[in-house]
Design a protein around this nucleic acid. Structure first.
Lengths: 340, 340
DNA sequence: CTGAAAGCGCTTACAG
DNA sequence: CTGAAAGCGCTTACAG
């Protein structure tokens, strides 16, 4: 059947109403499960819908109602498994409310992110879950408010005027440092990478605070390449500082993966020659050997929570801004030992 | 500003037209970059749009035009990094055409998949890229055709009546088997897992054919758990058959990860005690040690290609069904040696 | 509980 | 090049 014929043959609510010998208004009420309609009438209308193969046209409804039942999700990097889990939580929770999510990848580029927000606005999304690209200016928040666009920031934040769902990165750093300290480590490095944003800052500050609280040197920061493929080959950077660390905390899952590989390449045994703690604890952390002791941040739950907050925000735009900061948990496995 | 005020204040094309002292039709033409409008008029209209803060309402346009500029993407498992890369290719290519993608996760459940397709239909998607859940009946294709819904199947196929973009799994198996044979292996196992679908069948058949072509025993199939976390602990299954394999081909990236970990746990050295070949070659394959020799399938490129085909299909619904089957490439790294 | 009517914001012939 | 008019498929008061 050609698209021409398809267009012609679309069955509308009016067709359904006629077939069931009711008015269009009544058919509309049945559609939206209003209690105003008698059960016998309702049954007749529902039968008519089936007979005619009626398809609800959300787009048309929305023109009237100003609700698209679409929400947007913008992440900085789709292929990072951490964001994939986040997204899966968002999709799950939004899907459960009958809504649908438009996905976009900002690629950590601010201009692309603006373009995507604009496009989503033209599509009339009811709101967006945004993990802001590094370098996003705080005044994006004002623009979004001027648009009347409900937004929840996730994992990274640029403004206190918008809802935020994130992680207690400082608490996670404390867990990692305290655990290593309990094993006798004092020279602990923090291996970071990637662009600068709030979560980066909070991890670094959290690391320093936790180290200072123990009266350890808080400045053993190692900067690694952003690309996973290049991290392993940069492992020597761990030992390029004046102080030789006996333990390393990893900025995230990618750093942990890369360093685990790189240490293997150097002939060093993790947990014996050097202790390693991961951060984020993505599902495939289970498959690294030795099993990686790691600070879990629960990306799926974060995504679900962000979606839930967005739905509330849409329903009630005048709520004051909220902050939900999840605790981390330390999963002790096998990658840490006493200092060599 | 309350949502009430927002609704009131929406500026429409008619407002723009008045502000620029032209008719609504002219403003519409400017919007869609028609050459019918003089450049001076165009400039005036564009200025009016800026002055008033006009936002194009795609939803309203679509009611007239029967094109939503939305396409759907349904994958069976969002958190599998293989599908994340696929999705990233789809999003990239669709985004480049100015369209937007609605994402959904079938969780490998056929009823959920039906529900998602129905929901997408109600949202008026112009078409969908579908990686069918295991167990999808071939007659889904007829239903979709009756709906007039353009679809391209990706990675897995259920019907020859719909476009398909996939991988030459049989060719990939041949590359793996031939390479192992060249090293002297004859007892080669194929470690599989997960639900049954076309890609599963093609891999298994491809393995058997490749083994038979070498006159090797084609029946060393090892069935592993679906969950990554359980694979490592099932590594002993590799040695539970009458014939002890000297090399193992992995069904996919998850199996490779799991077995690499499990072999480590058994104290076996990959490449010396047992050779291992991965399949799919997702980005973080780089971080496994020893570096994994792997058959690459290029999920991002597959996603881009599928998106491109869908766009063509939407533009030209009467095209005959097409099949695009990408070649694999063998990336030789360090996980294979001569038989012990 | 039901019907008739207006309107959401756009596009598309049709005249000029 | 421009204007007036109809219509896409729905929802929502407003009367009955």
């Amino acid at each position: 059947m050609s698209s021409q014929e398809r267009k012609k043959s679309r069955v509308t609510l009016l067709d359904v109403a006629r077939h069931a010998s009711v008015s269009r208004a009544t058919a509309s009420l049945v559609l939206r499960k209003s209690p105003l309609v008698g059960s016998e009438t309702r049954a007749r209308v529902e039968q008519a819908m089936r007979d005619l193969g009626y398809v609800y046209n959300i787009g048309a409804a929305r023109l009237r109602v100003e609700r698209s039942q679409i929400i947007g999700a913008i992440v900085p990097n789709l292929t990072n498994p951490f964001f994939a889990e986040l997204l899966s939580g968002i999709e799950e929770a939004i899907g459960a409310t009958g809504k649908v999510v438009i996905l976009a990848n900002s690629g950590e580029r601010v201009e692309r992110q603006s373009m995507l927000l604009q496009r989503m606005r033209e599509h009339g999304v009811d709101g967006v879950v945004l993990c802001p690209a590094a370098g996003t200016e705080p005044d994006l928040s004002e623009q979004l408010a001027a648009w009347g666009m409900p937004v929840v920031q996730v994992l990274r934040h640029i403004s206190v005027d918008m809802d935020y769902v994130g992680v207690d990165y400082a608490g996670g750093m404390r867990q990692a440092v305290d655990y290593l300290a309990s094993l006798g480590h004092e020279k602990i490095a923090f291996a970071v990478h990637g662009p600068f944003h709030s979560a980066y800052r909070e991890r670094v500050d959290g690391f320093r605070d936790a180290m200072l609280a123990k009266a350890f040197d808080p400045e053993i920061l190692i900067h690694l390449p952003a690309q996973l493929g290049e991290i392993a080959d940069s492992t020597h950077l761990l030992f390029a500082k004046a102080t030789q660390p006996t333990a390393v905390i990893c900025f995230n899952h990618l750093v942990a993966l890369g360093l685990a590989a790189g240490l293997h390449d150097c002939g060093l045994t993790i947990g014996r020659d050097l202790s390693l703690i991961g951060f984020d604890d993505v599902a495939d952390a289970e498959a690294i050997r030795p099993r990686l002791t790691s600070v879990s941040t629960g990306p799926t739950a974060i995504g679900e929570m962000a979606a839930r907050l967005l739905v509330e925000r849409i329903a009630n735009p005048d709520l004051p801004p909220r902050r939900v900061v999840n605790d981390t948990t330390l999963s002790v496995r096998q990658s840490c030992g006493r200092p060599a």
